[in-house]
Write a protein that binds this DNA or RNA. Structure first.
Length: 315
DNA sequence: AAATAGCACAACCGCAATTGT
DNA sequence: GACAATTGCGGTTGTGCTATT
């Protein structure tokens, strides 16, 4: 890249201004950055280009180091255990990639984010639930317990700086009685019912956001776009407990101009009404990300948790 | 063989928080 | 306290590879 000319006010005097190289990193650049960090340590990233000869901005250097060059990074795909952990963490804290990465040694937020988004797309395309059955079961159990114990929202439990995340703690999940009844009374064979309930948005809206701390002020996106009715959400428009099918495939792309949902809401239907009716409606000829029905499980799926998700749906 | 879709990954961007002056 | 610089985070996009049609 090199340099770019910037017009001065008059447009006559052109000054050379340093710009930074973009795009994929070369091994030479990696070496320069690694050498710099070895010598000076992490941090002060804007000084890198000044002292190392790298023509990269500080942000880019930091990102490269954190995501690729750090010696502690784990290489290779996610193990089943790591997958499980990611799912649990996501169920617990949402799109808090950095926090999730802190719980997964050797993994970066970017890795986790990519993993999750890929997984999400895949599941959405298949019309499958985001969270495996066992995760949902745990959540439901916790929800039932919470129904008996209202002390789940203690100040202590909301302590923001408490980054220590329980193995899989759904104690923050809150369900009101109505939802609990719904869950308990859902027909056993009606997986759709359960799926609806534990789709991401719902899950998120069930969470008391314990990690969005008062101290840690970073509040970049609304925790929910739904009415907060005490730990769970209702659809603003319909007043129902369920979200309507969403249209865009990716969580990140599902947003209104003014506000963003943290997760996609591709939940199905009116749970109180005629799920059967809706479910029996002819579906669009072409399946898209906005298609919410469970599609025939003809796709070949990768091994691991995803398969288990498929399995529970088939049965 | 070419076109297309899906996937995995890398990197950039904008914004907000934090830190330094 | 105000401002600027730096850092960190999450969303998004681009690219290359592979599988499928």
């Amino acid at each position: 890249m090199g340099k770019v000319l910037h017009d001065s006010e008059s447009g006559q005097n052109l000054a050379l201004e340093k710009t930074f190289h973009k795009g994929p990193w070369t091994s030479a650049e990696d070496q320069l950055l690694t050498a710099y960090v070895d010598k000076h340590g992490e941090g002060n990233w804007n000084a890198v280009q000044k002292h190392s000869g790298l023509s990269r901005c500080g942000k880019s250097c930091r990102l490269r180091w954190v995501n690729h060059l750090r010696p502690s990074l784990k290489k290779g795909g996610f193990t089943d255990k790591e997958e499980q952990r990611v799912i649990e963490l996501h169920a617990s804290m949402g799109n808090k990639w950095a926090r999730m990465a802190a719980q997964l040694p050797g993994r970066t937020d970017n890795e986790i984010k990519n993993f999750w988004n890929t997984r999400l797309k895949k599941l959405q395309r298949l019309g499958l639930p985001i969270y495996p059955d066992e995760v949902r079961e745990q959540a439901m159990n916790a929800a039932v317990q919470n129904g008996q114990n209202s002390d789940h929202h203690s100040q202590e439990s909301l302590e923001p700086d408490c980054l220590e995340i329980p193995e899989f703690d759904f104690k923050y999940l809150q369900l009101n009685n109505y939802q609990s009844v719904l869950l308990r009374n859902a027909p056993m064979g009606n997986n759709m019912m359960k799926h609806c309930f534990f789709q991401p948005n719902n899950m998120y809206n069930l969470i008391g956001s314990p990690y969005m701390s008062p101290n840690r002020k970073r509040v970049r996106e609304p925790e929910t776009d739904f009415l907060d009715t005490g730990g769970y959400a209702t659809n603003v428009q319909s007043g129902q407990l369920w979200n309507y099918p969403f249209v865009e495939g990716n969580a990140a792309t599902y947003s209104s101009p003014s506000e963003k949902l943290e997760l996609p809401s591709f939940q199905c239907c009116d749970p109180l009404g005629d799920w059967e009716t809706q479910h029996s409606n002819p579906m669009p000829a072409v399946e898209s990300d906005s298609t919410l029905v469970e599609s025939p499980l003809t796709d070949c799926l990768s091994s691991g948790l995803l398969e288990s998700v498929v399995y529970v749906n088939v049965n």
